[in-house]
């Protein structure tokens, strides 16, 4: 067998892999060891200075990271609960089943950035319809300019935008479940509620884990919502990791430092998602 042919056939795939994955990662690592900024563009070598600065002298990065963790876990948790509930609702034969199934999918078919612009208008403190309505009760909450409420606004928009996706995954999962265990459970004396707890939920565990992980990975990149809705404000109170990296790299042009933050973020995400998968598997699958 001529081994040269093997490499010829592998080459196109390898080129793509090196071009879009391996090279950027290696370049990011190299970049993170340089002091590239708008005054000194170029790949000089400054050792671990950027890393030392990130770990010892930059609470803003860590704040944005913990804020991101909070937002991601909260939104995905809410999406899972609401998405599962909606899917369960239209899973059985109810009236207008098809209508509801399509209705619940509409948010997913909209463009997130444009929808966020609409949400921003909706939340606007003096011109928005929400406060116009709340003024009947004498309320004028500062949806986007108070640090706490701004986070709530982001959670609302994220949940609205992505629950459909969770709904779709959970409905597909429910429809793929075998019918027989439910027949057996009914005869075995399980009430509808117990049937959910002891049969539906455990049978859905593998699908739930998959759906939660997909959404967690997506949610940890929260960027467009923050960018359009609050631009990280007020102050830095809604800034997430990706938004912080974006500001450092593409607004302040501290390319080297942004690369350091990116690479650190990547490592932390890989470790924490691995741990989360393990924990979820243990809790949901009881293994």
């Amino acid at each position: 067998m001529n081994f040269k042919h093997k490499y010829v056939f592998l080459l196109p795939g390898l080129i793509v892999l090196i071009g879009i994955l391996i090279f950027p990662i290696i370049f990011t690592v190299r970049l993170s060891l340089s002091g590239w900024n708008s005054f000194n563009p170029g790949l000089d070598f400054i050792g671990l200075k950027n890393y030392i600065r990130l770990f010892t002298d930059d609470p803003r990065f860590w704040q944005s990271f913990f804020r991101l963790s909070f937002l991601a876990i909260t939104t995905v948790f809410l999406q899972y609960i609401i998405g599962f509930a909606l899917a369960h609702m239209v899973w059985k034969d109810i009236k207008f089943k098809r209508f509801f199934r399509v209705l619940f999918l509409i948010p997913m078919m909209t463009t997130p950035v444009i929808m966020t612009v609409i949400w921003r208008t909706f939340f606007h403190e003096s011109l928005g319809p929400l406060n116009d309505f709340l003024s009947i009760f004498g309320l004028q909450p500062p949806w986007l300019s108070s640090p706490g409420l701004a986070k709530v606004s982001i959670i609302v928009v994220e949940v609205w935008q992505w629950t459909s996706f969770m709904f779709l995954l959970m409905l597909a999962g429910l429809l793929s479940l075998p019918k027989e265990p439910f027949l057996a459970a009914a005869v075995d004396g399980a009430s509808p509620f117990k049937k959910f707890i002891y049969v539906t939920f455990p049978l859905m565990a593998p699908i739930s884990i998959g759906a939660i992980i997909i959404r967690l990975i997506e949610a940890s990149k929260i960027m467009d919502t923050v960018f359009v809705l609050t631009s990280g404000g007020p102050g830095t109170s809604t800034e997430t990791s990706s938004f912080f990296i974006f500001i450092k790299g593409l607004r302040e042009f501290q390319m080297g430092y942004a690369a350091t933050a990116s690479f650190t973020y990547l490592i932390i995400m890989i470790i924490s998602l691995t741990v989360i998968v393990k924990v979820l598997t243990k809790v949901l699958m009881r293994e």
Partner: peptide, 10 residues
Amino acid sequence: YQQFINYPHL
């Protein structure tokens, strides 16, 4: 039942 119906997750 005619088909073997059990709980696959247990």
